[in-house]
């Protein structure tokens, strides 16, 4: 069953002569319950793909179908609630002057949902925070706890899709695994579909079923996790990226260095 179907998606910023084509003809499908990874160098358009899916970017062309329903550039409130975004920086994605309770209440107010108190308690439990976090301000939380709140805020609208833009790269290495495990559990429990952007091959390996490799606004290759890690990839650019992620590989044995 297809959750997301994107055909010939193109996005450009600016008009006329200095229009910058950021996405050129991107097409892909994501099945229900699948995690679709996006990798590629900085500036290749990964966040732009998420932005178009989320409804943040409005001047795209092509077609986006979410959960069987065609999405216009301008979304209705219920269409917006179908997919929610988790941002990279948990320090900038939560309002600094709102308590956690208020942050979680707001989406419920916007969408006119009932049982607000219960839903807030539920979602806090789901992301592994105790319910008295409601009274705290973001500056009283650690980075990992904030990212849990950001995930809770996204989940409280009961979306079908989570769009994750480097959800762990601003966190301590020790906390990254916690958040990844949480995301994995939630995906199973809530039957969510993920689109995940990451630079970190370990994150990709942990979560993604299929991975699109992007370069300069197009998908150069869509591959599966197993073939990516077998090194069984077709496009030279993908190979390049894989080598890059393995770190610096010495081509010559290092010279002896005199210690003294």
């Amino acid at each position: 069953m297809t959750m997301i179907k994107v055909e010939n998606l193109a996005v450009s910023y600016g008009h006329g002569h200095n229009a910058l084509k950021v996405l050129r003809d991107v097409s892909f499908e994501v099945a229900k319950g699948e995690t679709f990874g996006l990798v590629g160098e900085s500036g290749c358009g990964k966040s732009t793909v998420l932005g178009a899916l989320a409804g943040r970017i409005k001047n795209w062309s092509g077609s986006i179908v979410i959960d069987g329903e065609g999405a216009d550039p301008k979304r209705t409130k219920s269409q917006l609630a179908k997919q929610q975004m988790v941002f990279q920086d948990p320090f900038g994605s939560i309002h600094p002057r709102h308590t956690i309770g208020r942050t979680l209440l707001e989406p419920l107010e916007i969408q006119g949902m009932d049982r607000r108190h219960e839903r807030i308690e539920e979602v806090l439990r789901d992301v592994g925070l105790s319910h008295n976090f409601r009274y705290r301000f973001p500056h009283q939380l650690s980075g990992g706890q904030r990212q849990r709140v950001a995930i809770a805020r996204a989940l409280i609208l009961k979306p079908r899709i989570l769009l994750l833009d480097e959800p762990t790269s601003a966190l301590d290495v020790s906390i990254q695994a916690e958040i990844l495990n949480l995301l994995k559990d939630l995906r199973e429990r809530e039957n969510l579909t993920y689109v995940l952007v990451s630079h970190d091959m370990a994150v990709i390996a942990h979560l993604c079923d299929r991975i699109a490799v992007m370069h300069d606004g197009i998908f150069v290759e869509v591959t599966t996790r197993s073939s990516l890690f077998r090194g069984d990839v077709a496009h030279p650019y993908t190979r390049n990226l894989l080598d890059g992620s393995r770190g610096y590989v010495a081509t010559k044995p290092p010279r002896e260095v005199a210690v003294g």
């Binding site: 609630a81 994605s93 002057r97 707001e106 916007i110 969408q111």
Partner: peptide, 26 residues
């Protein structure tokens, strides 16, 4: 264009709500 404003917009918040609830306190 702060992430918390974008997050609210992606949940359906309109201009009035963003200005009153997010910008005013700041």
């Amino acid at each position: 264009h702060a992430d918390f404003v974008v997050a609210a917009e992606l949940q359906g918040a309109g201009m009035g709500r963003v200005l009153l609830h997010h910008i005013v306190p700041l």
